[in-house]
């Protein structure tokens, strides 16, 4: 659906993305991992159409994304950003209803039903009538997830669309982190391409189908999560020495070694 082909991004003389080619697959949860400043957000901005690549191409269904009408794209592509201003606080239900804007400027009865279902699925129905600024960070995140679910309702039914999640677990407690990623998996199971920026390598390892490791603006590795999330690659991507710790059930988690050294990371110049 969305594809980046040999994409470079140079801004203010700094190379933020260097020769990245990737295609998040439909029906799979792809996690993007990398240290701070590695270029994860830049990739998201390219996928959102917020930035144009300096060179290379961003494609949507095989043709340049800029040739596709924004309105049409917004019915198949949704974003849950990390920071969303609450200067003018809507009620949670009103906010989730904005997800129907690409479909109908004024909501129909069906839109209201879709939004109620989305709020229920995101476990946000209990506080649907509360103002967003009175909710905790995690509750807000669930409301924004409900908005994205409402936005992609039809795309999900058709099994074709993309959901971009920028650090979706940032404000969530452990239980809701699990729930958020299980929901992301479920959406991928419905046929969406779900791309999530995560910082928790163990959450990523537990839930991801595919993984992309970004290091200094380059795509260090991408593909099946089980193959990509290896100790050496992760240590390089995250600038920290990691070691695998086996669990009794045969799975493993990654822990920083006690002798780790922090290697400051810059962008390419």
């Amino acid at each position: 659906m969305i594809a980046l082909e040999q994409v470079h991004v140079v801004r203010s003389g700094r190379t933020l993305v260097h020769d990245v080619t990737c295609t998040p697959a439909q029906g799979r949860l792809t996690v993007v991992l990398g240290a701070n400043g590695a270029g994860k957000t830049s990739l998201f901005r390219l996928m959102c159409g917020e930035w144009e690549p300096t060179s290379g191409r961003v494609l949507w269904e095989g043709t340049p994304i800029k040739n596709h009408p924004r309105g049409k794209l917004s019915r198949k592509r949704a974003l849950v950003a990390q920071h969303i201003p609450v200067t003018f606080p809507f009620r949670a239900h009103e906010l989730a209803l904005l997800g129907r804007l690409p479909h109908n400027r004024y909501p129909t009865r069906e839109d209201l039903e879709i939004v109620d279902a989305a709020l229920a699925e995101a476990e946000a129905l209990d506080f649907a009538d509360r103002r967003i600024d009175t909710l905790s960070g995690g509750e807000r995140q669930r409301v924004h997830m409900a908005r994205a679910l409402a936005q992609l309702h039809e795309a999900r039914k058709a099994g074709s669309g993309i959901l971009l999640l920028d650090e979706p677990t940032a404000h969530l407690d452990l239980a809701h982190q699990q729930q958020m990623l299980l929901m992301a998996r479920k959406l991928a199971g419905d046929g969406l391409a779900v791309v999530a920026v995560l910082h928790d390598v163990n959450l990523a390892a537990a839930h991801a189908d595919d993984a992309m490791l970004i290091h200094r603006g380059r795509l260090l590795a991408s593909g099946n999560a089980a193959q990509v999330l290896q100790t050496g690659l992760l240590s390089t991507a995250l600038n920290i020495n990691l070691q695998p710790v086996p669990l009794p059930d045969g799975k493993r988690i990654f822990m920083p070694t006690s002798d780790h050294t922090f290697k400051p990371q810059g962008v390419l110049t």
Binding site: C48, I84, P85, L101
Partner: peptide
Amino acid sequence: APWLNALLLGEGEAAMLGIP
């Protein structure tokens, strides 16, 4: 008015909702 509502979420989010 509905587009102005979307604008309150930030320009990036509004653009993702199909707003020019």
